[in-house]
Structure formats: structure tokens, C-alpha cells
């Protein structure tokens, strides 16, 4: 029930936010660099680029690809990238605190009813009784680094189950997968397409959904340098509107599936230009479809979720206690929830 109304509301808001922007005169060919990871969750930018939404908004966009979210945040701070999408991490908050980065919109969201991030258990731990998140007490939970979104998710799940977990930093997703397969760590949480691919191969077991523990989780946000947010208003608005058009196409094709099978197929082919490029289309397609999570319409931002994440980072002593929502977020660009 609530799901439906919220989605409907968001669609409306997104549409409302987008429409007036479309009528604006295009900026004169503004060059900019957009940071991206080769993940399905970054599809909105790819769609906006491929379908010419950026060009229509007068933006000459060049992608710069990264291996992890962390260097992308640093690239924004150093001016090597102008806009990017990434999870709220300790690094991002620290950069915001230093006046280098600003969250300006929301991207990927957990939403009940849509397949979201999964909680995984290693086969060894599963066989030893870790069949549901209730048994996580005393287990080893994998994360890339302290202050990453994995750390946040693990902590929230542990808190909800009053479990004491050990958090094991492994730096890279690849290393985590290796450690999980060989039973070096017991549990992890990850986006659905990776989770399903692993579980489908029998390498790990899915034991729960992150959405059950962190409803309305604002997984990734759109951010830019503080300078862009404050002084390049026209450019930033143009970027967000084009990004939102890309998100709308993506949601319609793969999340809400309202655009029909052909549109879905086109969308998967478009994304395949950027994601899983090392695999043939037939193999990549299921992973791309599985990875489709809601990208907020109109790049709306769930400030409640961001506030909750910020509070957690502060409570863990990972960021300075002086950081406020105002330092982290510039809420003037998009609708908030």
C-alpha cells in the first residue's frame, strides 16, 4: 500500500521537477567530467549520455571510470571529476567537512517490493547454522573499508539483531568474494546482481534482504564539488535534470517494467556498452536485469536516510562530530523525502 503511494508520489515529483527544466535554454556546450563505476547502479548517467539528454542540456560530458567509490570522491575534491554518484561513505563525509564535496541529489534506493541488496552467508557458515540474519552474533562480516556502506549496513543489521559482529576490512569487492567463497569470512551484504550471480553458482547463500533492516535506504547519492554546488547553479541543474531523465528511462524499462519488453531489451543493450563489457551480451543481460534497483525519480534525496547514515558515522567516531546535514547536503537542487 504505502509502497505504491510513495512510488506514485515520487514519480509525480520527479516529473514536476523535470518538466520546467526542459523548457530552459540549453547551456552553451559546457565541458564536464562525470565519474562513474561500471555498475548497473550508474546506469542513469549512461542513459543520459547515450540518449543525448546531456547534449540537449548543453553539456559536453566525458566519463571517467573508477574502480571504487572512494577514489571517485577524492577525484571530485581534486577537481578531476565534476559530478559523480556514490554511496555515502566516511570519506565522502570527511571531504564534505573539509568543504570539498557536497551531496546534491539521490540515486539508488532500497524499496520494498523491488529486489534490493542481499545479505549473504558463506557456505561454511551456512552449513554451521547461519541460515538467517538472526544468527549473525559472533560472526565475521566482510566490508571493503571501515566507513564504507558495507560497514554501515552490517552495523545496522547487527544492531537490529543485537548481534556482536567482527568487521573484516578487505579493501576490494573481489577480495571479499574470494574470502567469502573460501569461508574466511562468514557474511556480507551486496547489490542484488552480484548476490544472485554468486548464489546461483552455489558459492554462497542468500539469507536475507538489507531492505528489511534499513527501509528506504538511500544507497547512493549524486554529489559534486562544493564549488560547483554553490557557484555553478545552471550547470548543476542541467546535469541533474538530464540525469533524472536517464533515471526515468531506466526505471520505466527495468524497475517498473512499464515500458515494455522491447524498451527493456534496448535498455539492457545500452547499459551493456558500459557494464560487463568483457562478457557476451547473453551472459551480461541477466546480471544487468538482476541489478536493476530504483534510481530516485528527479534525483530526489531521502534526507531521513542520509541523516541516519551521518548519525551512524558520527556515533562510530569515523567522522568529526561537528559535521551537520548542512555541511554534507545542498538540498536546494532536488526534492527531499
Amino acid at each position: 500500500m504505502t509502497t505504491f503511494t510513495r512510488r506514485g508520489a515520487m514519480g509525480l515529483l520527479g516529473g514536476a521537477a523535470t518538466l520546467p527544466m526542459l523548457g530552459r535554454p540549453a547551456l552553451a556546450n559546457t565541458k564536464m567530467t562525470v565519474g562513474a563505476l561500471r555498475f548497473t547502479s550508474h546506469a542513469a548517467s549512461f542513459v543520459a549520455y547515450e540518449r543525448g539528454y546531456f547534449a540537449e542540456a548543453g553539456l559536453d560530458v566525458e566519463f571517467r571510470f573508477f574502480q571504487a567509490a572512494q577514489p571517485m570522491a577524492v577525484a571530485i575534491a581534486s577537481g578531476d571529476a565534476d559530478y559523480a554518484v556514490t554511496a555515502v561513505s566516511g570519506g565522502l563525509i570527511s571531504l564534505a567537512e573539509k568543504g570539498a564535496a557536497k551531496v546534491i541529489g539521490g540515486a539508488l534506493s532500497e524499496e520494498p517490493g523491488i529486489d534490493g541488496q542481499k545479505i549473504l552467508a558463506s557456505n561454511a557458515a551456512f552449513d554451521a547454522g547461519l541460515t538467517s540474519p538472526e544468527m549473525l552474533d559472533g560472526k565475521r562480516f566482510a566490508m571493503t573499508q571501515a566507513g564504507s556502506s558495507f560497514h554501515y549496513m552490517g552495523s545496522k543489521i547487527a544492531a537490529a539483531e543485537s548481534a556482536e559482529m567482527q568487521f573484516v576490512p578487505l579493501q576490494k569487492v573481489g577480495a571479499i568474494i574470494g574470502a567469502l567463497k573460501s569461508g574466511q569470512v562468514d557474511a556480507w551484504s551486496i547489490v542484488p546482481h552480484i548476490a544472485k550471480a554468486l548464489a546461483g553458482g552455489g558459492a554462497v547463500q542468500i539469507i536475507g534482504d538489507v531492505a528489511d533492516y534499513i527501509p528506504d535506504y538511500q544507497v547512493t547519492t549524486v554529489f559534486t564539488s562544493a564549488d560547483n554546488a554553490a557557484n555553478e547553479r545552471a550547470q548543476t541543474e542541467a546535469f541533474l535534470s538530464a540525469f533524472a531523465r536517464g533515471a526515468d528511462d531506466f526505471n520505466a524499462a527495468l524497475v517498473d517494467k512499464t515500458a515494455g519488453a522491447d524498451a527493456a531489451e534496448d535498455m539492457v543493450r545500452l547499459i551493456h556498452k558500459y557494464v560487463y563489457t568483457d562478457r557476451p551480451y547473453e551472459k551480461a543481460a541477466p546480471s544487468i536485469r538482476n541489478g536493476a534497483m530504483r534510481i530516485n525519480a528527479g534525483a530526489a534525496l531521502n534526507t531521513g536516510s542520509v541523516q541516519d547514515q551521518l548519525d551512524w558515522f558520527k556515533a562510530e567516531g569515523l567522522v568529526k562530530p561537528s559535521v551537520t546535514m548542512d555541511t554534507l547536503v545542498d538540498a536546494s537542487y532536488v526534492d527531499t523525502m
Binding site: A73, G90, G91, S94, G147, Q166, L170, Q171
Partner: peptide, 18 residues
């Protein structure tokens, strides 16, 4: 990989938190 405590882990964590 897998170190919660240690000078190296501390430096890596500080780096990722900027």
C-alpha cells in the same frame, strides 16, 4: 586484508575516510 587493528589498518582506514 582482514586486519581490524594495526598501524597499517589504521592508515588505510584514515585514507578511506580522508
Amino acid at each position: 586484508l582482514g586486519a581490524q587493528y594495526g598501524i597499517g589498518a589504521y592508515i588505510l582506514e584514515a585514507g578511506s575516510l580522508y
